[in-house]
Simulated assay, not measured.
Amino acid sequence: MMKSSAMGSGLLLLAAIVVAGFHAAAAARHWDTNTNTVRVHSGGGDGGLPWECCDFVIRDPDFRPGLWQCQDVVDKCSPNCRECAASPAGNGYVCLDWIVSLLEPPVCTPRPWDCCDLAVCTRAYIPICHCADMFASCPTNCKQCELVQADPPRYRCLDSFFGYPGPKCTAPWISVSSN
């Protein structure tokens, strides 16, 4: 009986340390933990995202589920942006707000593909990606399409995209084996 009580106290202490670490990490990122910790897109006005879309988004690798910040330079920050700063280049403004989301925020410039299972990307801070998937026909937003297999005809989009490759075409829990 004594051992289970000590183990329960140990687990409770561990949980308290994890929660305290989470709050300290959030505060270090200038995150307002009192209001709107998780912003929900409401179509504008108070409580909406600090940006509608973002081409140069960064993700904090240490935060789960996902902590995102937009590095796009704009003429004027959105009214939903809480921390707007002059761009280091001096030609506009950057919103320094972070948002929590399971998914990457939407991009402003459309990707050359709608989805991609086999993305090939550089390891740069903001990667340059190519999609090596073969399709029955190229996506409508692809500018450079190549026939890679004649029977049955399969095509590959040769366009590159400056940013993350986007969603996968096949859900990760669905097997694509031919068994």
Score class of each variant (00 low, 15 high):
L103V: 05
D46S: 14
A171E: 07
L103M: 09
D75T: 15
I128A: 07
A86V: 14
L14G: 12
G45I: 02
G92C: 02
C129H: 07
Y164Q: 14
L14D: 06
D159S: 08
C129F: 03
K168E: 09
I126E: 00
Q71M: 15
A27T: 13
W98L: 10
I99L: 12
T170I: 10
T140F: 01
D55I: 05
W98K: 15
G66P: 09
A132L: 09
C115R: 13
G45F: 01
T122P: 00
C142F: 00
L102P: 07
A25D: 13
H130D: 01
P139K: 02
I128M: 10
W31T: 15
G48T: 15
G47D: 04
A86M: 13
M134P: 00
A26Q: 13
A26T: 12
L147Y: 01
V19D: 07
T109S: 11
V107C: 02
L67S: 15
V18Y: 08
P167N: 09
A89P: 00
G47T: 02
C138E: 00
I17S: 11
V18N: 10
C77S: 10
R154G: 08
H41I: 01
G21S: 14
C169N: 09
S178A: 15
H41S: 15
P139S: 04
G45K: 12
T170L: 01
D117Q: 06
P61W: 04
V74S: 06
V176H: 08
V94A: 04
A136Q: 06
R156F: 01
V18H: 11
V38K: 00
Q149V: 05
R111P: 02
